[in-house]
């Protein structure tokens, strides 16, 4: 059992890398997406909406197949690792855009009005007044999303990424049945998600202490 567990550890860097890259890509792409979602004009709003619905409505495994076999066989060739990070990143952008949007909705209307009345440009209002407050309220749901993303990236093994899940499958096949690899994987994923939850709570507490009494 311990051997199995230790063997799975070799997959951890890859699992974390896919999760981290996808999250970073999603966090960045989520910004233009939420801005389009909140735009004054209907066209960017509609496009963002369509993207978000499609990204969230199709199972991740289908996305990865489309990106890896579809995109990958055509113009560009992607390694399984690249395809998984890109695919999960594009999906994450949709979820994170919605989290940001929820954050915008919590802001009192007076915040933007005050910044407008001061003569700040749209970009400055976003950068200095709105975004920091949106980010602050978005941290807890972002952390929750990160933990679920870590679990969801197990689908990367279906296109051949050598992550924890791939090793689990190999171990299970080698052992010819038995569920030790799966129990090990369960324990491992729980252990991996604990630091994320702790870190999120700490960041949240620190920001909260600063902005309220």
């Amino acid at each position: 059992m311990l051997d199995t567990f230790l063997a799975l550890l070799h997959g951890v860097p890859v699992s974390l890398a896919v999760t981290g890259l996808a999250f970073a890509l999603g966090a960045v792409l989520g910004v233009p997406l939420v801005l389009m979602r909140r735009a004054g004009h209907w066209l960017p709003r509609l496009l963002a909406r369509i993207y978000i619905e499609i990204a969230r409505g199709i199972p991740p495994v289908v996305w990865l197949f489309i990106i890896f076999f579809g995109l990958g066989s055509g113009i560009v060739t992607l390694t399984p690792f690249q395809a998984a990070s890109l695919g999960m990143g594009l999906i994450s952008a949709a979820y994170l855009a919605e989290i940001y949007r929820g954050g915008f909705l919590t802001l009192p209307a007076g915040q933007d009005a005050a910044a407008v009345a001061l003569g700040m440009t749209r970009l400055d209002r976003l950068r200095f007044v709105l975004a920091p407050q949106v980010l602050r309220v978005s941290i807890p749901p972002m952390a929750t999303f990160l933990v679920s993303l870590l679990k969801d990236t197990t689908v990367a093994s279906t296109i051949g990424v050598r992550d924890v899940m791939m090793l689990v499958t190999q171990q299970a096949q080698a052992a010819g049945g038995g569920f030790a690899p799966f129990i090990s994987a369960a324990v491992l994923y729980i252990l991996l998600s604990i630091p994320v939850a702790l870190l999120a709570r700490k960041m949240d507490a620190r920001l909260r202490a600063r902005t309220s009494r």
């Binding site: 915040q111 200095f128 902005t211 309220s212």
Partner: peptide, 14 residues
């Protein structure tokens, strides 16, 4: 060229 003061203050809390 105009300054405005609101009922709810609207200071930036962060």
């Amino acid at each position: 060229s105009t300054g405005m003061v609101f009922q709810q203050f609207n200071l930036f809390p962060h």
